[in-house]
């Protein structure tokens, strides 16, 4: 089974990298771009076929290591 985890900064946490990307896009002439927030994508390959168990496992992985829940939130997508 494959899974994709999206890790992004929580709302309200300043994102200097996102801000710089936004400025750069504006500088390239993409004037429609307002706020930009960036994050991480982590692809996982898992053994087993129980989707619910996999989701619970990945949630534990996010809480323990993949995300810092002080500043980040995560979303899990099973494929």
């Amino acid at each position: 089974m494959k899974a994709r985890v999206f890790i992004t900064l929580k709302n309200g946490v300043l994102d200097p990298q996102g801000k710089a990307i936004g400025h750069a896009l504006n500088g390239l002439g993409f004037g429609s771009v307002g706020e930009v927030r960036q994050g991480k994508v982590i692809d996982l390959e898992l053994s087993g076929s129980d989707a619910e168990a996999a989701k619970a496992d990945i949630k534990a992985m996010c809480e323990k290591l993949l995300a810092n829940t002080v500043i980040e939130k995560y979303e899990i997508e099973l494929k």
Binding site: V13, L14, P16, Q17, A20, N68, V70, I71
Partner: peptide, 11 residues
Amino acid sequence: LPGALMRNAGL
């Protein structure tokens, strides 16, 4: 310790 250390504001 509480909180987190993030990327410098000036990158």
